[in-house]
């Protein structure tokens, strides 16, 4: 198939960017979206134009490194990551607009590459269970109710791609935050730090400049791992509990 691509090009963090138009012929429907961009880049390189920079690593939907706004949807029209989106979701003659995640806490580094280190800092500020190596009791010392263990797993599947922020009209990272709060907060091991964790992670979230949540649900709809909105309610509940305890 033949496609017209409108792609955001921006030389670096401080340069002004603009949309550029490219024609690409001979795209196979078996290609992933990123392989289609690989082909474009080969073509650009051959023509003496610098290839489009975009992030990707595992290309099997688990590392969370890739993430593009495709025709106004985070990771494109399917519920999956950009790397697992295949060209069979498009048709011959389509015009596709490709933009980077847009959020001020995710500044553009170049073209379609953004800096998501704000997520790392949110994890640094409490997104863990303090358990020094070697200090752990036997793994069977504390049984965990299966329902809770399953819940913890379901929300721990978050890949930190940032699609929730990209899709949210408020630029909020509440889904990412809620997923971590729920993961750690539903396990017995996570209880001792539960109150301080939620307060410090929320504090970091706000300090990074993410917006507030208005519960409209665009994040959950864009999440390639289908993390539900429940986690934001749990986040709010944990904060409320912490507030009642004076944290």
């Amino acid at each position: 198939m033949n496609l017209t691509l409108n792609i955001w090009r921006q030389a670096n963090a401080t340069a002004a960017g603009a949309m550029h138009r490219y024609e690409l012929a001979g795209v196979s429907e078996d290609m992933s979206f990123l392989e289609m961009l690989d082909v474009l880049n080969e073509q650009l390189n051959a023509n003496g134009e610098e290839p489009v920079a975009f992030d990707s690593d595992c290309r099997e939907g688990i590392c969370g490194m890739c993430g593009l706004m495709i025709n106004g949807q985070a990771h494109g029209p399917e519920v999956t990551t950009t790397c697992q989106l295949h060209m069979r979701s498009f048709k011959d003659g389509d015009e596709i607009t490709v933009e980077p995640w847009r959020a001020d806490p995710f500044p553009v580094v170049k073209d379609l590459v953004v800096d998501r280190s704000a997520f790392d800092r949110m994890i640094q500020n409490g997104g863990f269970i303090s358990a020094n190596t070697g200090s752990a009791p036997d793994a069977h010392a504390a049984p965990v109710e299966k329902k809770l263990a399953d819940l913890a797993f379901d929300v721990a599947t978050c890949i930190g791609c940032g699609a929730c922020v990209a899709a949210c009209p408020n630029g909020s990272a509440s889904l990412f935050l809620g997923a971590k709060i729920t993961h750690l907060g539903s396990l017995p091991q996570g209880q001792p730090e539960r109150d301080t964790r939620v307060v410090s992670m929320v504090g970091q979230h706000d300090a990074e400049g993410f917006g507030g949540c208005t519960n409209i649900g665009e994040c959950a709809a864009a999440c390639p791992k289908e993390i539900p909105l429940d986690v934001i309610s749990r986040l709010n509940k944990d904060l409320r509990t912490a507030m009642a305890k004076g944290y």
Partner: peptide, 26 residues
Amino acid sequence: LTRRAHSARSTKYVVKKNKGSSLSSR
């Protein structure tokens, strides 16, 4: 909160679609 939301995305998308939100929420 509205001001926060605006400063969280000072550069708007060229194309943005909604797929998870109700009209009332927007």
